[in-house]
Design a protein around this nucleic acid. Structure first.
Lengths: 183, 183
DNA sequence: CGCCGCATGTAATTAGTTACATGATTGT
DNA sequence: ACAATCATGTAACTAATTACATGCGGCG
């Protein structure tokens, strides 16, 4: 399980509150390990209990207080150790493909629509990726080491996304040849 | 959650026991919705309780009895209905990318090894895909409708796999430029 | 006045993993 | 005798989702 480590990864860059973490997740490490704010709050408590994070309440003008989390030395050590462990292959789980196993004249239109929606969604995702890439990773060779790693993750996202778009097009073309049932 | 529907999908083709299902999963719909035999057995009980599956004990010569599961009409209806529902985007969860966010001189060698292992693993997976493709989906245009859907899922797997191999090569090349720390 | 953003959570449930358990037959 | 394959499960635990809950401040 990588959620605690994904959280600590985000905290490498900056100290953050649970709320800020949940938002940051949407545009950084959370792109590769999605989580809800509820789970993040729970996990933050656990990590603080284990001594991997330290927390401090910070008062803000015109806003509710927030609880800032900071990586401890122990946290950093735990991260370094975790990276060196064996990670197992993540097997895919996507019900779209399960649904495709059940393709018929009756649902071809629906599946076409679902794939179109997915395509649209992925285009938005790619737009985000490209924005990040242009901003921070335009020249990958000159990046410091850690940034190169982030770039490689980003690159994986971009490549996967582009490949998915191409597959959608193939799939939509093939689905287009299936006739609707006559009423 | 697509596990019950993945199970029923497998049972569209053939009546099977839990044990057979668990094995069949490895080379069919389970490629897109992995599950353990324990979970499958649990789910089979639930599905039988709900009336979507019917079960019958079958004696075998020289082997233990098995419990054969068959899709009921209600099960088929439930499947058809499920396909027409909205499926939500499956967000990726792969700790390899989380680890890459933590790339440093100290772990570059380890991550290189991990990516190599993943590459190897994916090549084996692709070999399986291609074997299935040659056997059953050599000429996709002439397939009956449902088979076209299965082919599209398979194609997605193949394309994703090929893309992943290419990414691994890019990543390995980049990681190769990082110097080890001096002891 | 009501909605949105900020900020933090608890509770209940479902899904998934890991470990453990049993017992028969076939091959070495 | 021992391991492997066939066959079915239970129990305990961890992870993740869904629903619910609260309260302040600013904006229209």
């Amino acid at each position: 399980m990588a959620l605690p480590h994904a959280i600590m990864t985000a905290l490498l860059e900056d100290d953050m509150s649970g709320y800020e973490l949940a938002k940051a997740f949407d545009v950084s490490v959370g792109l590769f390990w999605r989580s809800s704010h509820q789970q993040i709050y729970q996990e933050l408590h656990k990590l603080a209990d284990r001594g991997w994070l330290q927390c401090a309440t910070v008062a803000q003008a015109g806003k509710p207080d927030k609880i800032l989390y900071t990586l401890t030395e122990e946290g950093r050590d735990a991260m370094a150790e975790w990276v060196l462990g064996e990670s197992r292959v993540q097997e895919g789980k996507d019900d779209l493909y399960v649904k495709l196993y059940n393709l018929s004249e009756d649902n071809a239109n629906h599946l076409t629509a679902e794939i179109s929606r997915r395509r649209e969604h992925m285009m938005q995702r790619l737009y985000l990726y490209e924005k990040i890439r242009r901003r921070h990773y335009a020249n990958p060779v000159s990046l410091p080491v850690r940034r190169k790693g982030v770039f490689l993750a980003l690159l994986a996202g971009i490549r996967q996304g582009e490949q998915f778009l191409a597959w959608c097009d193939e799939a939509l073309a093939m689905l287009g040849t299936i006739d609707e049932p006559v009423e």
